Computed example of a mutant assay.
Amino acid sequence: MFGEICHIEAAESGGPRYNSKQTDEDRRHYDNLILLCRNHHKATDDEVTFSRRKVEEYEESA
């Protein structure tokens, strides 16, 4: 199994949970990243199911 480093709030406009108030530095910061397998990375792109809070809860429980 391989892991993917994923953004909790998207790095680019139009991405899942993009936050226009974040700086580029904040987008790249460790606190905005989560390690997921490829399948879960794809699943968390669904913003209806995976809000920022939900992704953070998922991260804390892993």
Rank of each mutant, 00 (worst) to 15 (best):
K42I: 15
G14V: 12
C6H: 12
L35D: 08
F2Q: 07
Y58S: 02
I34F: 06
M1I: 08
T49S: 10
L33K: 15
L33N: 04
G3C: 06
A43N: 10
G3D: 14
G3E: 11
A43Y: 08
F2R: 05
H7V: 06
E56K: 15
N19Q: 08
A62H: 02
T23K: 11
L33Q: 08
A62C: 05
D31Q: 13
E12S: 15
T44V: 14
D26T: 02
C37N: 15
H29K: 03
G3M: 09
L33E: 01
R53H: 06
A62W: 04
H41Q: 10
E9T: 08
R38F: 10
E57Y: 05
Y58F: 09
A43F: 05
K42W: 12
N19C: 08
H40Q: 13
A43I: 11
I34Q: 00
H41A: 14
N19A: 13
V48H: 12
R53P: 00
V48T: 10
I5R: 13
H7Y: 14
N39V: 13
E56A: 03
C37T: 12
H7A: 09
R28H: 07
I5W: 05
L35K: 08
K21W: 00
N19M: 11
D45K: 09
L36N: 04
S20G: 05
E56H: 10
C37A: 05
D46E: 07
N39G: 01
Y58V: 02
K42M: 11
Q22H: 11
T23V: 14
H7K: 02
E57C: 09
H41V: 07
I5C: 10
C37V: 05
K42A: 14
N39L: 10
C6G: 01
D31S: 15
